[in-house]
């Protein structure tokens, strides 16, 4: 903040400036550590991507991606997660305008869309395991299940977090602590959508092409 002459600036304005500076600093420092965590998570996913890419050709008599991927389901999953990410952003905007009920509404929408995503993925996994194409079948399927499963696990954690967040905002309103938590949650959720872009492209689209 710039130096201000206390005699020329009104009391109200001074308070505003202090509050503003403090607030923006608070939001940035409060979420920086979490950002670093997200980046380390990115490295985790990168190593799983590397494993998948290395193992992709090793189907040893098992099915290839072309045979087991259902692209319609994948598009549905992608859209659900993308819209969910968007509504989470809207929740953050409503939070900044202090509209508690809108925040709750957007949280519910994000939660339901995330649930749709997770259910489609679970159905896919269930189906694959039922027809005997589980992670034990081949290197390709091991890589596939670990990579997509880890992402799904993150989504599940995000959903649990959202449910807890919903309860906390319902009970305690948009308190400072809740604002911070919701900000972190939104970062987590956007991050998972970003990881999904690459799963969508590298696993499913490349796989469907039968590269």
């Amino acid at each position: 903040m710039n130096e201000v002459d206390i005699k020329t600036i009104s009391h109200k304005k001074l308070l505003n400036r202090i509050y503003k500076a403090e607030e923006s600093k608070f939001f940035e420092t409060a979420s920086f550590g979490f950002f670093v965590y997200l980046m380390t998570d990115l490295v985790l996913f990168a190593s799983l991507f590397a494993v998948y890419a290395v193992l992709e050709a090793n189907t040893v008599g098992g099915p290839s991606g072309q045979q087991i991927f259902n692209l319609n389901n994948v598009l549905l999953e992608t859209l659900a997660l993308l819209i969910s990410s968007f509504t989470m952003g809207l929740a953050i905007l409503s939070m900044k305008k202090n509209h508690r009920n809108k925040v709750l509404g957007y949280l519910v929408i994000s939660f339901l869309l995330g649930l749709v995503f997770l259910l489609i993925e679970m159905t896919e996994f269930n189906h694959l395991i039922a027809i005997g194409d589980s992670w034990r079948r081949s290197g390709f399927l091991s890589g596939f299940f670990v990579l997509v499963g880890t992402h799904g696990l993150h989504i599940m954690v995000g959903l649990i977090w959202m449910a807890i967040m919903f309860y906390k905002i319902l009970k305690f309103g948009l308190s400072r602590v809740n604002i911070r938590r919701l900000t972190l949650l939104s970062m987590f959720w956007h991050f998972l959508d970003i990881v999904w872009i690459f799963i969508f492209t590298i696993v499913y689209l490349y796989g469907a092409l039968g590269r």
Partner: peptide, 13 residues
């Protein structure tokens, strides 16, 4: 005053 500054903060983001 808090609400006002809050809105101003929003414009940055």
């Amino acid at each position: 005053s808090q609400i006002k500054s809050y809105h101003r903060f929003n414009k940055l983001e």
